[in-house]
Simulated scan of single mutants.
Amino acid sequence: MSPEYAERASKLPGAVVWRRRAAGSTGGGAAGLVLPDGCIDLLWTEGRLLVAGPDSRAFQLGPGLRGPWAGVRLPPGAAPALLGVPAYELRDRRVDLADLRPAAEVRRRTGRIDAAPDPAVALEELALRLAADAQPVDPLVRAVADALAAGRSVAATAESVGLGARQLHRRSLTAFGYGPKTLARILRLQRALALARSGVPLAETAARTGYADQAHLARDVRELAGMPATALLPR
């Protein structure tokens, strides 16, 4: 893991707390690239609280987004209940939390996190408080996310939760920000990159994660990340 970036499991089930030091000037490339993962993040940087919606493609960090940052990465389907907004309204967007919650409340929260000895811990406490005040995540939404993350097909997932294709698509837009096919594709990419980064050859990675072949994997990586798979692997 980069010395500029660290993460740990959150006290909020399924979430991850992360922090990133201020990065240097942007030069493009994988170092400044945020890959789609089906998640929504609650973000802090000094003086600001934001939400990063579910990405459908890679997001390149710009000069104003280079840190330092702390974040709570919420698992697929968890954020709409916490934020009170359907995930599709946040897709491919970075928005101020004050656009989603009362502005006075957000100003108070921001000041407290700015003054905290560890902003990441304070941000996690905010996420836990939002979760305590929210409705629990629908078990069906969790079941869909878990099935797709495990590599089950969209058809098999729909059957397992008792939904038709249109119902599953509609529920997925609200919970995840995009339809189940897109979410399945993004989660498959994440599984493939995790395997490849552990040292598994790309041809074997493709076979083990459900791609037709290595060329299929290469096309998917380029379409979702905007660069070849080899550029995303350790050198």
Rank of each mutant, 00 (worst) to 15 (best):
S10Y: 04
H216S: 14
G64F: 09
R171A: 11
R66M: 05
P76S: 09
G162H: 08
A98C: 02
A79P: 04
A134G: 13
R20M: 15
V72E: 01
V85N: 01
P180N: 07
R171G: 11
A87R: 07
L224W: 05
G84L: 10
A229W: 01
A30C: 02
R8Q: 13
D114V: 04
P80Y: 08
A225K: 02
G226M: 03
V17M: 09
P13S: 13
L128S: 06
T205C: 05
L50W: 07
S160E: 05
L97W: 02
F176K: 02
R93K: 14
A149N: 11
A81K: 07
R108K: 12
Q167D: 00
A116M: 09
A218S: 14
F176Y: 12
A22M: 12
I186W: 04
T209E: 10
E204R: 15
Q214V: 15
L128W: 03
L83K: 01
V221R: 02
E223K: 08
L148F: 05
R152I: 01
A122Q: 03
W18I: 02
A120G: 07
T174K: 15
R142T: 15
A145C: 08
R208P: 00
S10V: 10
L50G: 08
A78S: 05
D213S: 10
A31D: 14
P86N: 04
L128N: 05
A58I: 00
I113C: 05
D55V: 08
A175F: 06
G62A: 03
G226E: 01
D96N: 00
E159P: 00
L49Q: 03
G32P: 00
R197E: 01
D213Q: 10
A120M: 11
E125D: 15
I40E: 09
V106E: 03
V161I: 05
R91E: 07
R191D: 05
L195S: 04
E46K: 15
P102S: 10
E46G: 15
A225F: 05
R57W: 03
I40K: 06
L195P: 01
V72M: 03
D41H: 12
A184Y: 03
P3A: 12
R94A: 11
P54S: 12
G47Q: 09
A104N: 09
P80H: 08
Q135M: 13
W44M: 09
P13K: 12
Y211H: 09
G53C: 05
L163H: 06
L33G: 02
R185F: 05
D55Y: 13
T174S: 15
L163G: 01
L148V: 10
D99C: 11
S2G: 00
R91G: 08
L43Y: 02
L130Q: 04
A155V: 13
V16L: 15
Q135N: 14
G67H: 04
D138E: 11
